[in-house]
Design a protein around this nucleic acid. Structure first.
Lengths: 129, 129
DNA sequence: TCGAACCCTCACATCAGTGTGAAGGCAAGG
DNA sequence: CCTTGCCTTCACACTGATGTGAGGGTTCGA
């Protein structure tokens, strides 16, 4: 798949697809004429990347964890390649993500409480025009 | 409290405290000589802001929701000030935060699964030096 | 063969969040 | 009084993520 199609199918501008490649988040191979050639799975990959970026992770952190997110089908790294170091790194990333989740959840709850408290006026979410 | 003390107590550089003010996230008043004068509550406020920024929210979004986060003690806006518009805006913010949480949680789980799958080698999280 | 619609790289621009330093006012202690 | 350490504003600079455009090659259909 060429970059234009991937862009259309994911809604992500080609500029960003090239950027993600520059950041080593995507690795399309090239056809003879130099065009990028993406596998079908790239669609999922791009959505994954977008979600994580939107959640406030940097490309660097995404690059670090992406290899371990590829799919539940099979484990990529045999255990002998998972040094204690790598495991610790990974655990650190997990912890950071967890901290973010907690912060966001806390604030979401407070916003919900506020909203609930301030409009007990019989509105149950239905938006009436 | 002057800016230096707030900085020391929060670990946030004075530069950023001034920046947050410029972004209308903080509103210290001024003493006669022009020094910023923060209330005690600013310590909490700054930590709140930092947490949200670290979670990937922009100052703009934080500015939008901060007024509603001030404290569970009392509702700031009387119901008559909460137009349906504002409520919808707020709900939109909540939804975005929720989406982030879900994305992060999903990926956290996948990382955890990976880590668990790849090291069933009797290590139960204890880091041995 | 020509034009439209792709693709390429390069590079400058923008925005948010920061770092850093200059140039100067105020306050307290030796 | 003078130094030291706060405080002030102003301003330039960097990074990461993204927009945008220039300049140029490729593919394909009319």
């Amino acid at each position: 798949m060429k970059i234009g199609e991937l862009s259309r199918r994911t809604g992500v501008p080609t500029r960003l697809l090239r950027y993600y490649e520059e950041q080593h988040l995507l690795h399309p191979d090239r056809t003879d004429n130099g065009y990028r050639d993406y596998p079908e799975s790239a669609v999922q990959d791009v959505q994954q990347i977008r979600g994580l970026l939107d959640s406030g992770l940097t490309t660097q952190m995404i690059r670090a964890i992406l290899p371990y997110l590829s799919g539940p089908d099979e484990i990529l790294l045999p255990a002998e390649h998972l040094t204690p170091d790598t495991a610790a790194l990974l655990q650190g990333h997990i912890d950071r993500i967890q901290a973010r989740i907690e912060c966001l959840a806390r604030n979401r709850d407070r916003l919900r409480e506020y909203l609930a408290a301030v409009r007990p006026e019989g509105e149950e979410g239905a938006v009436r025009s």
